[in-house]
Amino acid sequence: MGLTPWFDRYLFIDCSAVRRIAKALVIGREAVLSCAIFPYSDGVKEETNNKIKLIKRREYRYRNILHIRLKTSICR
């Protein structure tokens, strides 16, 4: 069963919350389908960025930028 029958069924339902969800899925249809079809993720990149931000938050009081760069190079 494809998504098109689901869209047809729930796009014109009386419940406004379900209707809003259906409209959002219609607008982002290609993104939803590509997410379901392709197993690729940018989770590793996001994890590295999160670690760098965490280190920057912890190290905000240090004056030596070299110390922060050494800490962030460990994340790679």
Rank of each mutant, 00 (worst) to 15 (best):
R58N: 07
R69D: 05
R58D: 08
I13K: 07
P5R: 09
I65W: 04
L11I: 05
R58T: 06
I68Q: 01
R57S: 05
I55E: 07
G28I: 07
K51T: 06
S41Y: 05
I74T: 07
L25R: 10
A31R: 15
K56S: 04
D14R: 13
K23H: 10
Y40E: 08
E46D: 03
G2P: 00
R19L: 07
I13F: 00
L25E: 01
H67F: 07
L70P: 00
I52P: 00
I68H: 00
T4F: 06
P39E: 03
S34R: 15
A17D: 14
E30Y: 09
G28F: 02
T48I: 13
V18E: 01
G28E: 13
Y62Q: 11
Y62T: 11
N64Q: 11
V26K: 03
R69T: 03
F7Y: 07
L11W: 01
E30H: 11
N49S: 06
N64W: 04
D42V: 11
D14N: 12
N49Q: 11
Y62H: 13
S34G: 03
A31N: 13
K51M: 11
Y60I: 14
L54H: 08
S41D: 13
W6H: 06
Y60L: 13
L25H: 04
P5C: 10
E30Q: 14
G2E: 04
F7C: 05
I21Y: 02
L33G: 02
V32L: 15
I37Y: 06
D42S: 12
K71R: 15
A24Q: 03
T48M: 14
K45P: 00
C35Q: 10
F12S: 10
F12A: 10
S73T: 09
P39V: 09
F38E: 10
K23W: 05
T4P: 01
S41Q: 12
A22N: 07
P5F: 06
R76V: 02
K45E: 05
G2N: 08
I65G: 02
K53T: 06
Y40S: 12
M1S: 04
D14P: 00
V26E: 08
F38V: 15
N64H: 09
I52T: 04
T72V: 15
R69M: 09
L66E: 12
Y40T: 14
S16L: 13
K51A: 04
P39F: 13
N50I: 12
E30I: 02
A31Q: 14
E30P: 01
S34P: 00
D42W: 11
P39I: 09
H67L: 15
L66C: 02
S73W: 08
I55G: 03
Y10K: 08
S41P: 02
G28D: 14
R63V: 02
G2A: 13
A31L: 10
C15S: 09
